[in-house]
Structures are given as C-alpha cells and as structure tokens.
C-alpha cells in the first residue's frame, strides 16, 4: 500500500475562507496544497512528490460547480467535474472540442472525481518524476524533485516535464480566460498567460491563489473544433501527445484559427496560424490544403523529448497524424 505522510486537512465552506486559510498557513510557514477531486494530488502525495503540511479541501465550497451562459461567454465553475463538463448541453453546443477533450481524460471514475480546475492546474508529468520514492532514489533524483540532474536532457538546466492536461489544450484553442481568487482580490487572465515553460511548476498560480472559474468566449461565426489524443490505453492513460484545433469561418474563409499541441514539454505549444486567415475553407480540397499546411508546420515546430514512456521519433511522426485526426473530427462534427 502506498501510504501518505500525515497532513492536516482544512475544509472551508466558502472561497473567501479557502484563500484566507491558505494565506494564514503560508504566513505561519506551513506548506499547503489545494485538493478538490484528488485524482492528481493524491497519487503525487503517495509517491512523495508533494509534501504539504496542510491540505485545503475545497470540494465543499458552494457556487464553484456548473456552467452558465452569460451571453458572450460560458462561465464554468472550477469544481465542475470532467464528466459533467463532457455531457453538459451548453458545453456540447458552444465548445464541443472541450466536451470531447474532457471526455477523453483518464477513465470514468476519475472523470467523475476530477475537476476542470484540477485538470488546468495538473502537475506536469515525466517518466523520471511520476515514480515512487524508491524508484527515484534508485536512479538518482531529478531536477523537478529532490535532485539537480535532468534525466531527459543531458546537462539540461530547465525541467521539461510534460503538460498533460487535455482540457488546457482545447481551452487554449478557444482563447479561454481563468479567474483566480487571492486574499487581495480576484483577477482574470488569459489561459495563455497562465502557463509558463517551467516543468517544475508550469503555472503562475501562487500558493495563496484559488482557481475559481474558467471563461470561454462563444463563437461569433461558424466554428469547427476538434481534439485528438495519443495514448497507450484509450481507456485511461495520460496523453503522449495531444492536439486541439479550432477554425472559425466567416463568409467562406478562415477568420480565426488556433492549433495547440501538448504533452511535449512544460507549456502547451501554440502554433502560429495567422497565415491561414483569409484562406478559402468551403470545399473539401480547400480544407485539406489548410490541414496539409498545418501538418507540415506542426511537424516542424513540435519536437517531443524523452519525457514520456515512448519513442520520441514515433511521437513526432504522430504529430501530423493527430493534426489530421483533430481536423477530421472538427469537420465531421460541424458538417
């Protein structure tokens, strides 16, 4: 049995109480960790990757679940479970790619436990990090935890553990924003600015911050969305590679396009797609021309490293395949 080291548990019943507790424990010099569904934090506690003195369980905070349409945005509570997100009619109608991405996270039990906020704040993953203490000690501790050496990039000074959150890939395509609550007040930021290229901690989330809401702008024109994920076991695994794609079409031409490739390194990789704005996107060949160009761009820009349990050459070859799959899904859903 993988036992956890003891910790104290706080169970706040409001957002204000939660951030006040986080601030008070931090001020007293106690390390904290926020937990909701527990599907990421608990295994990491069991592996000794996190070692908080206090766990703040926010699962009983009211008002952080559910999806609301405010006219221009979908407002999604951070405690909305991934299962609820995947089947919610508003999400399926206005952000079908997000619904699909949520439906592909882990297995059914984990989707009923795991939350959107937890998925966005998911710890990065690496072949040399997500292991037991015994395993990591036997090999030699790594840069991300307890050591100073990167086992992925020889001589590397920056952690390249992979961002493995499916919903982030798609939400970046949808220009989503996140709302963070701190003791000093609430702030909204682009999801793009939420992630940083540092595998040790790949978000700007501070220890006293609570992610409370995700804002997804609704489409102003016809939209195609697709998400494709590569993994060993389609029933449960984290991505070896993931691709999110969004194409907005207005008057028969591309008016906006986003493509994000993730599970490469610590920050989801957003591809520059402005070159396709204004390109015709009505007929089959026109669409295939767009995706063919996108596949070449993705292959050139996305170079997986040996941070996950599979061959990097194969993962790179699969970049093109996944872009095509995301595209096929986007077109298939919209047509």
């Amino acid at each position: 049995m993988l036992r956890m080291d003891p910790f104290l548990t706080e169970t706040p019943t409001s957002v204000d109480e939660a951030v006040a507790l986080l601030a008070a424990h931090q001020a007293a010099g106690r390390s904290t960790k926020v937990i909701a569904g527990g599907t990421d934090v608990v295994p990491n506690l069991k592996h000794g990757l996190f070692d908080p003195e206090v766990i703040v369980h926010i699962g009983r905070v009211p008002g952080l679940k559910g999806v609301v349409d405010d006219g221009g945005h979908l407002l999604i509570g951070a405690l909305t479970t991934l299962h609820d997100l995947s089947v919610h009619p508003l999400v399926q109608q206005h952000a079908s790619g997000l619904a699909r991405a949520a439906s592909l996270v882990a297995g059914p039990q984990l989707r009923r436990m795991g939350t959107l906020g937890g998925n966005l704040a998911l710890d990065t993953r690496c072949l040399f990090y997500n292991q037991t203490y015994f395993w990591r000690e036997a090999l030699g501790f790594c840069l991300k935890k307890d050591g100073s050496l990167c086992h992925v990039v020889a001589g590397g000074k920056k952690c390249v553990a992979a961002a493995s959150n499916d919903t982030a890939t798609m939400l970046l395509c949808l220009d989503a924003e996140v709302v963070l609550q701190a003791p000093t007040g609430r702030r909204t930021m682009k999801l793009e600015d939420f992630y940083v290229a540092n595998g040790i901690k790949n978000t700007v989330l501070e220890a006293v911050d609570l992610l409370v809401q995700v804002r997804v702008p609704k489409a102003a024109s016809r939209r195609f969305e697709g998400y494709a994920k590569l993994r060993h076991r389609n029933a449960i695994d984290y991505p070896l590679l993931s691709v999110g794609l969004r194409v907005d079409v207005d008057g028969g031409v591309v008016s906006a396009m986003r493509c994000v490739v993730s599970a490469l390194q610590a920050r989801p990789h957003k591809l520059p797609c402005d070159a396709w704005i204004g390109r015709a996107f009505e007929h089959r060949q026109e669409r295939q021309d767009v995706v063919d160009g996108l596949k070449q761009l993705a292959f050139a820009k996305c170079v997986p490293v040996k941070n996950l349990a599979d061959d990097v050459v194969w993962r790179r070859e699969m970049v093109r395949v996944l872009v095509q799959r995301a595209f096929d899904e986007a077109i298939g859903e919209a047509s």
């Binding site: 527990g38 608990v42 059914p108 436990m113």
Partner: peptide, 8 residues
C-alpha cells in the same frame, strides 16, 4: 462510481 484509493 469513484476510486476509494484516491478519496480522502
């Protein structure tokens, strides 16, 4: 249906 090994 949830996983009791990950539920505090």
């Amino acid at each position: 249906a949830v996983l009791s090994c990950l539920t505090l």
